[in-house]
């Protein structure tokens, strides 16, 4: 997902009776569906885990601007150009909301950037794949945003107030993102044979990385169990992946496309699709920094930040000058 394999520092899940009174009250509040707000007492591990998860989510939005941004200047019509630009701009906005939510936990945005730029913080594996044709822009909207929504909708109910509220705003704004992607593809598959081929090629390349977005099975993961106990994660990775496949396969059929999975078939008994296992070795390579675009994505972010230092400093200096002038003129009165 946008936040993949977030560590919690937990060795195992504590029972209520093993907790000290403060922690027990905290856990009971979560269990009864109350929101935790900034500056309220929280276990250090909860705070750290949230910072990891929210900042990873924020970094994914910011790095996620790049693959789609790659096609803004080549969008095929004025309307498509405006829609894509608005969408990528929304992603910057979502990154901003999320950084702000993380800032309420006692970390600054610049610190989070530093963690991203140094490679210490992760972002979603999906954004390390290249956008090679216009159909990829459709595929990202349809598959990648589609997968993200699966995760983000339940996060609106997560236990940490600022994160939940940011997700409400994000989900509201994102409602058009998946549709615009599907719309691009729907138009193309009804176009020329070359366009239809482009769409199939995009699905072939984006299908498996999209399934990997949910992360490896975490049914046995103590981190995942801890995150669920804290209500900062609501569903298991496999649950979400199944839901995604069930929702997406009929849409692919509607578009007249072939999902590139020979093992894909409807399972009447479970009322869902059976499907093949993604190549997890590829996933771990990408996470380790060896995806097709890791170096370029991180390089672009570092460059934007480094090239912008003089700009940010210039504005700070001006604001300080003006404040000093005002103070002086007040003192002179």
């Amino acid at each position: 997902m946008y936040a993949q394999m977030v560590k919690t520092d937990a060795a195992r899940i504590k029972g209520l009776d093993e907790m000290d009174p403060q922690e027990r009250v905290f856990q009971q509040r979560i269990d009864t569906g109350q929101k935790i707000e900034p500056k309220e007492w929280m276990p250090e591990a909860y705070r750290k885990t949230l910072i990891r998860q929210i900042s990873q989510h924020a970094h994914s939005e910011i790095v996620g601007q790049l693959p789609e941004g790659n096609w803004i200047t080549r969008a095929p019509t004025l309307e498509r150009k405006a829609i894509l630009l608005a969408k990528v701009q929304d992603e910057a906005g979502h990154g901003l909301y999320l950084y702000c939510a993380a800032e309420t936990l006692g970390i600054s945005r610049d610190q989070m950037y530093e963690q991203l730029h140094s490679g210490k913080a992760k972002y979603s594996s999906i954004f390390n794949y290249p956008t090679l044709s216009w159909a990829d822009i459709g595929a990202i909207g349809w598959l990648v945003d589609g997968a993200a929504i699966m995760n983000q909708v339940p996060l609106q109910r997560c236990s940490y107030g600022p994160y939940a509220r940011a997700m409400v705003r994000i989900c509201k704004e994102e409602s058009f993102h998946q549709r615009q992607g599907f719309d691009i593809l729907a138009k193309m598959v009804r176009g020329t044979p070359a366009q239809k081929e482009m769409v199939q090629d995009a699905l072939d390349r984006w299908w498996w990385p999209s399934l990997m977005m949910f992360g490896p099975s975490d049914d046995a993961s103590v981190h995942s169990a801890q995150s669920m106990a804290w209500k900062i994660k609501q569903n298991s990775n496999d649950e979400l992946r199944q839901k995604f496949v069930d929702q997406t396969v009929p849409q692919a059929e509607y578009l007249g496309l072939t999902v590139p999975d020979p093992d894909l078939k409807w399972n009447e008994e479970k009322g869902g699709y059976d499907f093949g296992e993604p190549d997890w070795s590829e996933f771990f390579e990408v996470i380790a920094g060896n995806g097709p675009c890791n170096a370029e994505r991180l390089g672009a972010r570092r460059k934007a930040w480094g090239d912008g230092t003089w700009f940010r400093d210039g504005l700070t200096a001006h604001a300080e000058k003006v404040a000093a002038r005002r103070a002086k003129s007040v003192a002179a009165e």
């Binding site: 901003l96 909301y97 702000c100 800032e103 600054s108 945005r109 610049d110 940011a166 705003r169 230092t309 940010r312 400093d313 504005l315 700070t316 001006h318 604001a319």
Partner: peptide, 28 residues
């Protein structure tokens, strides 16, 4: 370099209701 300070943003919408907190941002 020093970071731009954080600001809380309140917006009054079209319908004449009170200003409502909508989020935060950084600015010099």
């Amino acid at each position: 370099s020093s970071e731009w300070p954080l600001w809380e943003v309140f917006i009054r919408g079209q319908h004449g209701l009170n200003h409502r907190h909508v989020g935060s941002l950084h600015a010099p």
